[in-house]
Every structure is written in structure tokens, then in C-alpha cells.
Design a protein around this nucleic acid. Structure first.
Lengths: 334, 334
DNA sequence: CTGTTAGCGCCTTCAC
DNA sequence: GTGAAGGCGCTAACAG
């Protein structure tokens, strides 16, 4: 721009070395004599040198930029994850660029391509639908970390929780409280999380010798509004139920509201359990029992993992605690 | 990278012109003969040419990147605004880079500097505390749009609502419903929004000839937790109140929960009104009456405005509808 | 270990 | 109107 920036040439001059040497200490790509190195470092500090990202990448280096592909910006859970990623990137020297896939394979692919075109050093996928071979191809070898989704063929790059186990645990909690007629509000039908949570629900029932009844299962789409509709559907069907396990908190909110409108008390008449432990869940009336999925931590872990992958350093996937958060929306029967 | 990208040289060759000419049609900086122009365009299409962002900026062009400075990622309102910005940028050719200021002037300044260093073509500030002269200086002439904050010295670049008027209207709604003892839970004390909303509350009371009583005003910090504490404080003070106006929905949620714990009914015993109309407000029990602030629209408007500013085209600040959303958390007295 | 030499892809004078 | 030439700041061979 207008203000002349100091370049490696400048610092090369004041340190009495060549540009290359400066470049070397900058990337410590090659060993450099300790004295010269010190001189360079000092010059850099004195002149307040900041490498030009664009020149650097043009010459074939790193862009120090990471791409984040989100889905449907505005959803509490995914937004939290995204924010976790951004926070995790603070002080790593990497800056995030965001693109939205909108849960649409085509747009998702465009998002990935845009990011790759911008020469991101790595990519973080938050959710998504793209099949892994397409994804891999679009990435041209740029490392990718996948959050909240399990890709069979690159498990070591996926950060996600065991939805089946978590959903099973939630359902078991209801069973242990004496509930037998437990309804389930499922999420988007072809979404892996929905499928797994439904599976966990079914397993818990089966293990407890309770018959899985289709009339107690309603299809939602993860939105609060769909929770309302789902519960109304349930009411319309006329089946008896003393508890509802919703595949996410949003739908649980909808269920709660529908019960309120129908004059049913929670938890006296119907118990509710959600999934995600989104921040507001603790402030529902009554506070919602739910499964906490550590969105921020998942995001942070992903960013660390990616940074390590770029540096070709090993990284151990941290234990991501998924726990049942017991609040007042569930009652013990009898 | 590995796959050779097509450069302007390539298309210059196939179109039988020079690189310069190609560059010219790319930026239409200088008139070019219609035929050559067509040939160039055709070649670009055929070869699927994509200009290299980095080379372009290194040579002094646009980076086609916009910076977004958010505050405290994780807050529903600001996140929504941010998402609005990102959505608004789709298909403009600009990509967003995000940095977090964390409601900390120092970090905010760092965020701005980082972004400027990355040669963003424009900057969007979502909230923030930096005084405008510092901000202006850090920007080195890069255009800035400020959201959800009113900067005296550049009104034409601020997208925000009239908090005083909106808060006044909310309070008047309670007064019209027959409430006289109306408590107010204020936000962070030196935050402009808090100040303005408090002002609106006071004005409404004064206009209705109701004395503003300090014991009915409690300081919060915009978090739900602080809403709980604020209401408990109010209860402790032992002052009578039939309604609470909280400076944002989050705190209203806290208020609601505290009332629940205290065995008070809403709205029979106490009415509540919030501010922001964040998505979950409609799913509270009972659904929360609040003031809707169009976060997504504000973000979208800001991005359009910034893109126009960069192109030095005029832009009219759109009417941002702020309206009272009446739901069941307020009762009419008598 | 270090300096020299080429570019990376594009924009911008400058002559023609 | 157009092409040639130089340079943006940095990295990556290449010889020493």
C-alpha cells in the first residue's frame, strides 16, 4: 500500500546477509549460522518486519490461511464448532477463511474449491455431505480435518463423538427412571447423526426388552419448529407416551412448546431429553436434560489437529467428553 | 501447486495478444479493441482461467478479501450478524476472513491490524469498543463499515438501530398493559446498547409520569447467568414489581429461570420482555415478548454497503425494521 | 552453511 | 489501442 513495508531485502541489508539467509531463518528450512541468525532476528525485531503473505505464497510457500467449510450458518451447534475452530486458531499464526456449504453438496463443493483456490494450507469441514472421494479429489492433497462426521476411509482425521452410544445412554436414563413408552423425534432422515441416534434409541429399548414401536418415532429435521410438529403428530396418533427423546435440543424446545400449548406439564406428564446441550438448554423451563457434545472443544481440537498435520507432526485425538447433563425435565415414574 | 494453473500468459497466447491486453480486459482499466477483447474472453472461458489472487495483490491489485472483526464469538446476536455478513458476501466474489476482538480493545486492535496486514479490501466491525480515531488510523484508508454501534464521526458507515426508541417502545408496551412497577435489567454498564436501552426505559417511564426508581434497576452483563443473579438481587431488595424489561433476551431467559426457581409464575405474577428476538425466544415457556433486531439483515446490509464502498458506488442504508414481537410473557393487569 | 539466480502471476508505466 | 519491460516480496534450486 502507501506506507512502504520493510522487506526481507531491508533486513538482509541491515543484518549484512543475503535475502536467502533471511528467508531461511524465517522458515527455518535450512540451518543458519547462529550469529547471523541472531543478527537477522534482531533486525527483524528492530524494523518491525512482517512477511508479506501474498509474496510468500506466490513464491510457493504457505499461505498461513486455513479454510473452514460450514453448513447452514445459523445453527447453534455448528456455529459453536466453527467458533471453537476460530478460537483454536488464535495465536497459531493461521487465519481462517470461511465458506458456507448450506448442506448442499453442490455448494459445498464450490466452497471447497474456492478455498483451495485461495491456497489454504488446510481445510476443516464442519459437518457436510460430500462423499469422501470427491472431497479428497477437490483438495489436491491439502490436509483436511472433518468435524462432527465420521468418514470411514480417514478415521484419523475425524473429530466426532459416538452418537449411537450417547443416544443409547440418554434413552437408558429414561428407562431407568421407569419410562416404558418413550417417543423419539428423529432428525433429518439421511443425516448420519440422526441415523445413529435413532439406532442408539432402538438399541437401548431392545436391550431392556422393550419393543421398538414405529408409532412412537416421528421424523423431524433438527429445527425447533419441526419439534412442535412432531409432537403434534404424536398427539394426533393417540399413542401413549411418558417421555420424549429428541435428537437435538432445538427439537426438544419445540416439543416443550407443543406440550405447553397442549396443556401438558413437563416433567409431571411428559419427560423430555434432548441432545447437544446448547447454551440455552439450561434456561428452559424446566431446564432440559440433555447430552452435552463439546462443540467448542471439538472445533479447537480440529484446529490443533490441522495445524499439526500441516507441520507433519503427530497429533493425538483428545478424549471428547460426551456426558448426560441431568436437569429437571425428566421425572422418575412411581 | 502441482496442477499447472492457466495464467494470463496462456490465454494471451491462445488469443494472440499480449499479457498486458489480457490484464486490461481483466480489470477493464483501459479500452481494448472489441475483437481482441472477445477473443480474450473466449480464451478465458475455454481454458477455465481463474486469476491468481496472490499474484494480483502482490502486483498491487485487490485481494478480494474482506475482514470481519467480531467480539466474543459465541454470543447469539453477534454471531447472527456475522453470519449475515458471510451470507451477504456469497456470490460477490469476496471472501471473508474473521478475527475475534473478544470485547478487549487491545485484542481488537490486533485483530484489525492482522486483517489490514492481510490486505483486506475492506473491514466490517461487528460491535467493538475501539475509539474511532484509533480504528481509522489502524485501517490505513481501507473502508470500514460498523455494525451495531454508532460512531459519531462516520454515521454514514454505521448500521445500527435506534436502541433508545426501541427500548422506550418496549417499556411503553408494559405501561399500556397497566404495569407501574417495572424493573429493568441493564447490560454491561459502559456498553452503548445498555446505556441507550436504559435511557429508553427511563424516558418511557418519565413520559408516563412514573417515577424512575433506582431500586428497580439492576446491573447485568448480557449473559443469562447475570439475568438470574439480577432477579435474585431484585427479590432480595424486596421491592414490588409486576414486570421486568431485560436489556437482552439472554438475560430475560435468566430472569425467567430465577422466577421459576422462586415459584413465581410468568406472566401471571411477573411479566417479562426481552430484546433481540433471538431464535429461541419464541420457544421459551411462555414464549418471550421481545424486540426484534434483524441481525442477519444487518450483517447482509453491511456486506453490501462495504462492497459498494470499495467500488466507490453509493449505497443507501436500508430501513432496518425493529419491531416489538408480542408473545405470551406479558399479561395485562386488572 | 551461504550467496546468486530465477522465477511465482499479475499490474503498470512507457514507448510505439 | 497495444506490446515490451520492470517489479511487487518471497522461495527454491543451484553452485560454491
Amino acid at each position: 500500500m502507501n506506507r512502504k513495508n520493510v522487506t526481507i531485502q531491508d533486513i538482509a541489508n541491515t543484518a549484512n546477509v543475503s535475502k536467502s539467509t533471511v528467508s531461511r531463518v524465517l522458515n527455518d528450512s535450512t540451518p543458519v549460522d547462529a550469529k547471523k541468525r541472531a543478527a537477522v532476528l534482531k533486525a527483524m525485531k528492530n524494523l518491525d518486519f512482517k512477511p508479506n503473505v501474498f509474496a510468500r505464497i506466490l513464491a510457493g510457500g504457505r499461505s498461513m490461511t486455513l479454510g473452514i467449510v460450514t453448513q447452514n450458518i445459523g445453527s447453534p451447534f455448528y456455529d459453536s464448532v466453527t467458533m471453537g475452530v476460530i478460537n483454536g486458531l488464535a495465536d497459531t499464526g493461521y487465519s481462517p477463511i470461511i465458506a458456507d456449504g448450506q448442506w448442499n453438496q453442490e455448494r459445498e463443493l464450490v466452497a471447497v474449491r474456492t478455498l483451495i483456490e485461495r491456497q489454504v494450507d488446510g481445510l476443516i469441514m464442519v459437518g457436510g455431505n460430500l462423499d469422501s472421494s470427491t472431497l479428497r479429489e477437490a483438495c489436491h492433497g491439502v490436509p483436511v480435518v472433518q468435524i462432527a462426521r465420521y468418514l470411514e476411509d480417514c478415521k484419523e482425521r475425524c473429530i466426532c463423538i459416538d452418537n449411537v452410544a450417547a443416544a443409547k445412554r440418554a434413552t437408558e436414563f429414561l428407562i431407568e427412571a421407569g419410562h416404558r413408552n418413550i417417543a423419539h423425534i428423529a432428525g433429518i432422515s439421511d443425516h448420519e447423526d440422526s441415523i445413529d441416534r435413532l439406532k442408539g434409541y432402538q438399541q437401548a429399548l431392545t436391550d431392556a426388552n422393550i419393543v421398538v414401536r414405529d408409532e412412537l418415532i416421528v421424523q423431524g429435521d433438527f429445527s425447533a419448529q419441526s419439534g412442535v410438529l412432531a409432537l403434534e403428530t404424536l398427539l394426533l396418533r393417540g399413542v401413549a407416551f411418558s417421555a420424549v427423546f429428541a435428537a437435538n435440543d432445538e427439537m426438544a424446545f419445540g416439543v416443550r412448546l407443543a406440550l405447553f400449548r397442549a396443556g401438558k406439564r413437563v416433567p409431571e406428564d411428559v419427560s423430555i431429553i434432548g441432545f447437544d446441550d446448547q447454551p440455552n438448554s439450561a434456561y428452559m423451563i424446566p431446564p432440559l436434560t440433555t447430552v452435552s457434545q463439546p462443540a467448542l472443544e471439538m472445533g479447537a481440537a480440529a484446529s490443533k489437529m490441522l495445524v499439526s498435520a500441516i507441520a507433519e507432526k503427530p497429533f493425538e485425538i483428545p478424549m471428547l467428553p460426551v456426558e448426560l447433563v441431568v436437569r429437571e425435565s425428566v421425572t422418575r415414574l412411581r
